[in-house]
């Protein structure tokens, strides 16, 4: 592999043109983007280069091959590999020395906390207080991660979400996944997974995972 990289920083046109792929996608940091915009105002050659860059990106996007990934089959083979390769044990430096002390301190802290919590109501009844700006309820807790099938129509997605009282609370991730609040728990998750518009539905609740 050739490691010789010819620097381009000395030529302002080359420097700007090297940033055009990110500029055209709108993913350049603002200070870089501002300088590119300013350079483009005065440079017809770089403006033409930006036009060519946009054509290239449009062609690449149009021609991007949509390849059906057989994820489940690959995951099946991955499971077989994992069976022979358990995760590396976590480093346990000095575990034997500090662990009993840490557990002892933790127990003492828990006992003190229990004393405060149990004894306090008897000593001083606390009147319920609610501020004017207090939120009426806690925000919905995200409980699942979901991906929809490529090409799934919006009505099908909406129907699947409504059927299981699921609410999108985050996403999409770079992988195209969304976070859901799913009050129905594991049964709702299983039902959601069976929806035709859904390609993946996994719990984010650590308790629900083995």
């Amino acid at each position: 592999m050739s490691n010789v990289v010819v620097p381009i920083e000395t030529d302002p046109h080359q420097f700007v043109q090297a940033l055009l792929p990110w500029f055209a996608r709108g993913s350049l940091q603002e200070d870089d983007a501002a300088m590119v915009r300013e350079h483009l105002l005065h440079c017809a050659a770089c403006r033409a280069e930006l036009g060519a860059e946009r054509s290239l990106q449009a062609a690449l996007a149009d021609c991007a091959e949509e390849r059906a990934a057989d994820t489940e089959a690959a995951l099946g083979r991955m499971r077989a590999l994992m069976a022979n390769n358990p995760p590396a044990p976590q480093p346990a430096q000095g575990k034997g020395r500090w662990m009993p002390w840490a557990l002892g301190l933790q127990s003492a802290a828990i006992a003190a906390l229990l004393l405060v919590v149990v004894a306090r109501p008897a000593l001083e009844p606390v009147a319920p207080y609610k501020g004017l700006s207090a939120a009426p309820t806690a925000p919905p807790r995200p409980e699942a991660l979901v991906m929809f099938r490529p090409g799934a129509a919006e009505p099908a997605i909406r129907k699947a979400l409504l059927a299981h009282r699921a609410v999108i609370v985050g996403g999409p991730t770079e992988s195209g996944a969304y976070r859901l609040s799913l009050p129905g728990g594991a049964p709702a998750l299983a039902a959601l997974r069976a929806e035709p518009a859904v390609s993946l539905a996994e719990s984010l609740d650590p308790v629900a995972q083995p």
């Binding site: 995760p87 991660l145 996994e202 083995p210």
Partner: peptide, 15 residues
């Protein structure tokens, strides 16, 4: 070390 978490992550990243 939770395999189910790993499998969910695998499904996200495989494509």
């Amino acid at each position: 070390g939770r395999q189910k978490s790993f499998e969910a992550l695998y499904r996200l990243y495989h494509p």
